[in-house]
Design a protein around this nucleic acid. Sequence first.
DNA 1: GGTATATATGTGCATAATGCACGGATATGA
DNA 2: TCATATCCGTGCATTATGCACATATATACC
Lengths: 158, 158
Amino acid sequence: MHWTDKLHAILMGVSDLTNRIDIDARLLAASNVKLDRALLPLLSRLALHEQMSTVELANLVGRDHSTVSRQLAKLEDLALIERVPSSGDRRVRMICPSAKGKALLGAVAKVRRQWIEAHFRDWPREDIDQLISLTGKMMEGLDEVSLGGIEMIETRSA
Amino acid sequence: MHWTDKLHAILMGVSDLTNRIDIDARLLAASNVKLDRALLPLLSRLALHEQMSTVELANLVGRDHSTVSRQLAKLEDLALIERVPSSGDRRVRMICPSAKGKALLGAVAKVRRQWIEAHFRDWPREDIDQLISLTGKMMEGLDEVSLGGIEMIETRSA
DNA sequence: GGTATATATGTGCATAATGCACGGATATGA
DNA sequence: TCATATCCGTGCATTATGCACATATATACC
């Protein structure tokens, strides 16, 4: 098995794991938080970026902006996010978690931290550091809106 | 930022990346393959497991078995999978990619290999090995059907 | 300035995806 | 044998999603 295939298999596993709705469900339950399962991933991403526009977030999660727009409306109804007019561009309303949203995320993060720590209990500290360092390096430039380097192969023909 | 939060952020990034439908779309286009975008992830997972039952696959991808059942029906119509009666249990039909399905996956894998190799072009070989080793270790026991170790915190209360 | 084009956002609408409930078949255990 | 559990597929209602469109604003070009 080629190393790229091995890596891809692992990444798929990671993806499946973080997408398992039952995990989010358990996380929310354990945090005593009630929230539509589709909204937590969105809120979690927002927390990592300080401020984002609707389109940026849509690109990040790979869905149509209209879909994200509707989900954001729900989050706003729940007062979990705030929308700030962008200083430079009056078309965009930047989005960020509200105090309430941050509190919710904090409660969830607390439980998740326990889970992750339990999972890595037997790991040497340097392995954990290496893991974070290398995966972080791998994601550099890829977690942004565009796909960067991957564009080097032309696929527009289709 | 706590290391667990950092790790979680990275994993979310990985998840987003592997879930970006545009990536699958580009992959299929660059491979000259035409396939419903929902079906490639399923087929890819099947390829990693030799044989799986419908329910197992459903658990793996975190969706209802009925949903997966319908998607598998599509894959079968396209002759991309085969169903073999399980020797031990006559209720289950084990699923695996057909020759045609494997050929398709092979074409896709070839392009993906190029992409991944390009992305890691500047990496020292030992870093790549370390990355695969550590992420593989991280996923041990988690890529299976049940969640294993994560269960250690009781969440059934909800 | 004025005009054409591009981008950000939200909404209507049709379609696709999803989960739940159910039924039939088989397996497991009392 | 009987009761219970599991595997699978289908009917059905609900939800999610994308596309097309409209509006407001920005950017580029003349």
